[in-house]
Computed example of a mutant assay.
Amino acid sequence: MKKFSANVIENQKVNFLFDDSKNLSGLSDIEFKKFKKIFIIFDQALKNSWVKEISEIIKKSKSELHLIPLKGIENIKSLREVEKLLYFLEESNCSKNDLIVSIGGGTILDLSAFVSSIYMRGVKLVMIPTTLMGQADASSAGKTCINGKQTKNLVGSLFMPLYVYNNIHILKTADKYSHRQGLSEIFKYGLLGSKKLIRYLEQYARDSLENDPLLLKILIETIKVRIKLRKIDPLVSNLGHTFGHAFESESKNLVAHGDAISVGIVCSLKLSLKKRYISKKLYSQLIKIMRDLNLNINIDKSSNVERVVNLMKKDKKSDGDQIGFVLLTDIGKIAKTKNKKFLFLDAKYVSSFLTELYKDKDFLVTNHWKQLIKNV
């Protein structure tokens, strides 16, 4: 097993564990016995597989266990669900010295981390991601969040778990659809900060996305890049997200987060090309890698420019009609406005850019969001 520790947020040390054992032996590194009560928030779809095995290991600690099953869907990232969880913790006399264990993909991790951060101003947390998206992104930088009525990840806090336990074999129970979502975020981190990670991904594609030792290297490198970017600014990692979150919200979450972000990256690369920040050669190379990784590079024909731009105005990086973007000038290099960490473009310019982009018949596909769900 490989492991390392990092101070991702000031005075909040997190221990990352990377286990390649089938019997989850790496969980023994976590001292569950120190906690009187342990609350396990998990994706109910996992109840008869990994949750059962993990719970049996935790039971050996003799702690009082409370199991909290939830649907691992985007709609649970809501204030209503937060209130229900807070009420359960309060009624169960959860104290600041107890532990919350979160088992699932990105939605479960986001929600449970947010609840952990606000209950009694912070309850200790262990994250056990069961998807590639969860292992590579949702668990590694302390960005907890829930959605607003119209805007994704509108409400959140910065809070790190004590441990993040990543196991390669847990990922084998996830389908190709889920795997694709995680690869989109990993590719993003390669673009933002690691040519080594891009090389790993090119090799992973040549291996037909079937190489566990390489995937472990990919995960470790991804998280190291994620931590490095987090120390610069949490929003620097938002390449493709200004577009992607808008597509996701516009579709009412019909398109999965990773698929929305990957086509958001395509839009960002096209915008970087239009602004002459990157060369046509680099653009073509990166799009080829995306194709080889089977990432989504199209949007649904139902997408509407005005709706998308209005949603982009609500992005965390935006300021009124000035829409904030993370754009590349090269792998690992970000375009910036003077004295700003991001590039700001007027909404009218963005609208004009998208209007022109939407004229590309190969870019817009009829019923594409639904086709992505079937394309597993």
Rank of each mutant, 00 (worst) to 15 (best):
K3M: 11
F4A: 00
S5M: 09
N7T: 08
K22F: 13
L24D: 13
S28A: 14
F32L: 03
F35S: 03
K37M: 10
I41A: 04
Q44Y: 09
K47I: 09
V51Y: 04
E56H: 10
S63N: 05
P69C: 10
L70H: 05
S78N: 04
E81C: 10
C94Q: 12
C94M: 15
I100R: 06
I100L: 15
V101F: 10
I103H: 02
L109K: 02
A113C: 13
F114A: 11
V115G: 04
I118G: 06
I118K: 01
T131R: 03
M133Q: 03
A136N: 12
D137F: 06
D137G: 10
G148V: 04
N153M: 11
M160Q: 15
P161M: 02
P161C: 08
T173Q: 07
G182L: 01
S184P: 10
L191K: 08
I198C: 12
R199S: 15
S208G: 04
L209W: 09
N211G: 13
I220S: 11
T222C: 14
I223G: 07
K224M: 12
K228N: 10
R230W: 05
L235Q: 14
L235S: 12
A246M: 05
K252H: 13
N253R: 14
V255F: 00
A260F: 11
I261N: 03
I261C: 05
S262H: 07
I265D: 12
L271R: 05
K274E: 14
Y277F: 15
S279N: 10
S279W: 14
K280G: 11
Q285T: 08
L286D: 08
I287W: 01
K288D: 13
S302C: 07
S302Y: 06
R307C: 09
M312S: 02
K314R: 08
D315N: 07
K317G: 09
L327P: 08
T329G: 06
I331S: 00
I331W: 04
N339M: 07
K341W: 11
L343P: 04
F344H: 14
L345K: 00
K348H: 09
S351N: 14
L354T: 02
T355Y: 01
L364F: 02
T366K: 15
Q371C: 00
N375Q: 08
